[in-house]
């Protein structure tokens, strides 16, 4: 059944390695940017709150394909944003795709984290304020450490979704798993076995992620 799988001709592991890399960089990026957004949404400054709310509501509601294609056609092809590369096609697309994933995923990270912040009893923040801590100190020392511990499971969901979302990068020609899949279907004319093979590949990537992070979530949960 899998006789079409010629590993000399098709770099299956290379393609999935690119998928993993995309997931890793986009995951780190959206964790950072999502945390900043969440901090904005709970901050005492109205302008920052408004920006955070607007950002989340805009980017959470735009289809990812549209964001990724805009990154390439709008930013890359029309505005000639090269993302600190020498302007050659492949690395530029790779970085533009990561940019698109960060922009999109951070909206979800922000909302997950905000729900975590809401689980921290408000009395703790008030007590910290009464002790003379500033807003950023309260957030950094008291609220966020507890908030993160309670949102590991939802963040794992977002990470798994992100892993699968990286297939959208093939729409702008990043050589990840979905791009190889369309190449193999074109050559081998066997849609279903090839699709199954790639589905299996993604399950192998995401299943351990879910199990591991589920275990971590249990261990780290704040006992109240």
């Amino acid at each position: 059944m899998f006789d079409f799988l010629d590993l000399d001709e098709y770099d299956l592991f290379g393609a999935f390695w690119t998928t993993i890399q995309l997931t890793f960089f986009a995951g780190v990026g959206s964790l950072i940017w999502g945390t900043v957004l969440a901090a904005m949404r709970v901050s005492p400054v109205p302008v920052m709150r408004a920006f955070g709310t607007a950002y989340v509501n805009i980017f959470r509601n735009i289809p990812l394909t549209l964001i990724i294609v805009f990154c390439s056609i709008g930013l890359g092809q029309t505005l000639r944003v090269t993302m600190f590369t020498d302007g050659s096609v492949d690395p530029t697309n790779y970085r533009l795709a990561i940019l698109g994933f960060v922009v999109y995923t951070s909206a979800f990270v922000c909302e997950a984290l905000r729900s975590g912040i809401n689980t921290v009893p408000v009395g703790q923040a008030e007590a910290a304020r009464a002790l003379g801590l500033s807003f950023s100190q309260v957030l950094r020392l008291i609220v966020l450490p507890q908030a993160f511990r309670s949102v590991i499971a939802p963040l794992a969901n977002i990470l798994i979704a992100l892993t699968k979302n990286t297939t959208v990068a093939s729409a702008i020609g990043v050589a990840e798993a979905a791009a190889l899949m369309s190449e193999m279907i074109e050559n081998e004319a066997q849609l279903i076995p090839i699709a199954l093979l790639f589905a299996l590949g993604f399950i192998i990537l995401t299943l351990p992620t879910g199990l591991l992070l589920g275990w971590v979530a249990k261990r780290m949960a704040v006992k109240r």
Partner: peptide, 20 residues
């Protein structure tokens, strides 16, 4: 260098702007 897109129409945008 090879830019790949989902459809040929998307390539035409780049061809017109000079990116490809």
């Amino acid at each position: 260098q090879l830019q790949e897109f989902g459809t040929y129409s998307e390539c035409l945008t780049g061809l017109e702007s000079g990116a490809v």
